[in-house]
Design a protein around this nucleic acid. Structure first.
Lengths: 252, 252
DNA sequence: AGGATACATGCAGAAACGTGCAACAACGGG
DNA sequence: CCCGTTGTTGCACGTTTCTGCATGTATCCT
């Protein structure tokens, strides 16, 4: 058994079962517990697992508490939100857009995840108020009532003063040529400002958004890190996006 | 069962069922009550739960009692809020503080009233979202979870850029000598910043606040225009305030 | 007030841990 | 082909951490 094989095995176990017990794995694979512990230590150092006494847990526990999640949101958005929540690393900073899908992401964040959430949506703030370990930062400004988020010059300016590891953006249209679009110019500008402040930007797009285009462009494809959708990976448009080099994360 | 798993299990139980009974969990998981108690003690130390005799409750005492407070607005606050709402002139700009009394004011604003509301409370924003004629401006910043408002340097700075005709301020203590007080220093500073940006500042104080004093002073008496309360105008303390030249508006 | 239950504390055995060491295999240069 | 280097693996040792039990104390309920 190669060392790399062992590591894969451990990661697989972690993903499938949500935990790894050093002793059990050692017995299963017929190797010493020391090796398992060494592997886990290395994986933890790379941020690929979370070391605990007796074994290890997945870094982002989102997968494990999938069950403890409420579903009032349409199934598609729920799936997309769960996949997006899994991208959030512990102790990282997340910029979260407004909208129902983003709200579902907020609800999907595991209660034991400690991180910072930056948002321009009072609704998102309200949803995360009772989360024990999330630090909240609200970007203020004129409230655009239709979508219940802060927009305009002040909000964009406030956004200039923050930085984050990840930005999760909702849009209303995802189209191969038109790019990512939304129905309001101010909102589009705000989304651009948010995306610019994060190292990585992923777009949340449940399947009904795929192929649609709204009036105002948010961002060109080059500026985002990837797309999170529940649409079939073999859907014509999704395939066109993939061939154009867009990273598409399929939520299922 | 890993120790970390147990702790997660406890947090999940706490979130799902709203309580944990040490004895039951010990029986369910087949471990000693001591271990459960130890885990609960640790979680409580991290601020993730609230330890009580026999088990534990979700930590959100702040949030929980916030929503509890919100659910039933006592009659006194209701009266104060109604009197305060009556002060708001059409087409004026209003700075509205956070807190339950201020929220009652928001709900009490007539639907045909057109004005601008400036607030640092996401909850107030959410409450006014469906108001047809109110222009909303949210002051952003770090969210202070206990009272669900934006506080800190960024919020104070944002406040510097607005001006209003009227500011309605909630406090937790109204005392002849101590002045207007609240329980948190950041919050006190924020309230000061808000009051400074309005031509007139009125303090909302339902009767139970009269005569009380909290740790941090918000403003001295000279800096406010008046007090809105449902307390009896012949109440000793209220009379003392009146003789000191404070304008007291009695809500009834 | 008194019994019952929950609690904190100390303790001991067990389990898991980190570290140093030696054996061994893979690799590359001479 | 030989030998030194490097990296991996298992083992031994001492240390730390966890867990259940026993004890005495605090708290609750009647």
């Amino acid at each position: 058994m190669l060392a790399a094989e062992r590591r894969d095995h451990l990661l697989g176990l972690l993903a499938r079962e949500g935990k790894v017990v050093a002793k059990d794995v050692a017995a299963d694979l017929g190797i010493s517990e020391d090796s398992v512990r060494r592997d886990l230590r290395d994986l933890a150092a790379e941020g690929l697992c979370h070391r605990v006494y007796g074994g290890a847990l997945p870094v982002s526990p989102a997968v494990a508490d999938y069950s403890a999640r409420m579903a009032v949101t349409p199934e598609g958005k729920q799936k997309v939100a769960a996949a997006a929540a899994a991208l959030v690393q512990p102790d990282s900073a997340l910029i979260l857009d407004g909208g129902t899908t983003a709200l579902a992401v907020a609800h999907g964040l595991p209660r034991r995840l400690a991180c910072t959430v930056i948002t321009h949506s009072p609704t998102i703030v309200a949803a995360l108020l009772d989360h024990p370990r999330i630090e909240l930062l609200m970007l203020g400004g004129r409230i655009f009532k239709h979508s219940a988020v802060a927009c305009g010059a002040a909000a964009v300016e406030a956004a200039q003063n923050v930085s984050a590891d990840l930005c999760l953006l909702g849009v209303t249209g995802v189209h191969p040529e038109a790019g990512l679009t939304t129905g309001d110019a101010e909102e589009a500008a705000m989304k651009r400002a948010l995306a610019a402040r994060a190292a990585d930007t992923y777009v949340l797009a449940s399947s009904e958004k795929i192929g649609a285009a709204s009036r105002f462009r948010v961002l060109p494809w080059e500026e985002i890190s990837g797309l999170i959708t529940d649409a079939d990976p073999h859907h014509t448009i999704v395939e066109r996006l993939t061939t154009r080099g867009i990273e598409v994360l399929t939520a299922s």
